[in-house]
Amino acid sequence: MIRDEFTVIAGRALRLHQGVESLDVGAVRPSPVGPIVEWKAPLLSPDRQRRPLPGGGHVLGAPAGPDILGVLVRYTACRWRQGPPHAPSTWAEDLAFRHPAIFPFPPSSHAGWSWLWQAGAEMIEEYGIPKGFKTVDTKEKFGSLRWHTEANGDDRHADNVISCIDHLSSFVCEYCGAPGLLRKGS
């Protein structure tokens, strides 16, 4: 079940990335942070996805495929850490209490994205919170998560993790955390 969920979300999140066809999702092994999905993708481009602009040029799109998969591994570990997924009604307050340097206020979304917020907070803390880092806004907009931050120091890692979380939220149900898709319309 964990492997299947990971595979569905990865397939949707990476559908436009070069080399995605080489993705091989292997075993799921226990770890202190939760069940870790092992994957290989020898042909997956390590570059950010670039989209062509009308009239020429490119704009940066989704984060690099391997980075997305790394964050998806942690999301999956957080989601399945305590057994079958269940987010208590106090998840947002609990998350702000456990990670006060990341969330000075509870994140604003439904419980299905609680594991995305948690994965991001854990990954940022493990790498090292950038100097002057602070979350200034969290919300849902156009069916995706938005996490706005400020920092005085080098925040490339935190920014990349947050970009991956924002991207993955388009493929995760905001209400339950299962694989999802953006719907057309309101």
Score class of each variant (00 low, 15 high):
I2G: 05
I2A: 05
F6K: 03
T7Y: 09
V8N: 08
G11M: 04
A13E: 05
L16K: 11
H17T: 01
S22L: 04
L23Q: 07
P30S: 12
S31A: 10
G34A: 04
P35I: 00
P35S: 00
P35A: 05
I36H: 09
I36M: 11
E38R: 14
P42N: 01
S45N: 03
D47T: 09
Q49T: 09
R50T: 12
R51P: 01
P52Q: 08
P52T: 08
L53V: 07
G55D: 02
H58I: 10
L60Y: 15
G61C: 03
A64T: 07
G65T: 01
P66M: 02
I68R: 10
G70F: 04
L72I: 06
L72T: 03
L72F: 08
L72W: 09
V73P: 02
R74I: 08
Y75W: 12
T76H: 01
T76G: 08
C78W: 06
Q82M: 10
P85L: 09
A87C: 06
T90V: 04
W91G: 04
W91H: 10
L95N: 01
L95W: 08
R98D: 15
R98Q: 13
I102M: 08
F103P: 06
F105K: 13
P107W: 07
H110S: 15
H110I: 07
G112L: 09
G112M: 04
W113Q: 02
S114R: 08
S114H: 02
W115M: 14
W117T: 02
W117E: 06
Q118H: 13
Q118C: 11
A119H: 01
A121Y: 06
M123N: 06
M123R: 10
E126L: 10
E126N: 02
K131I: 15
F133I: 03
D137E: 14
D137M: 09
T138K: 00
K139I: 00
K139Q: 14
G143V: 03
S144V: 12
W147Y: 10
E150Y: 02
N152P: 00
N152L: 14
G153K: 03
G153F: 10
D159C: 11
D159Y: 12
V161C: 01
V161T: 11
C164L: 08
I165N: 03
F171Y: 14
V172I: 13
V172P: 01
V172Q: 05
Y175C: 11
Y175N: 15
A178E: 13
L182H: 05
R183E: 15
K184Q: 14
K184M: 13
G185Q: 08
G185C: 05
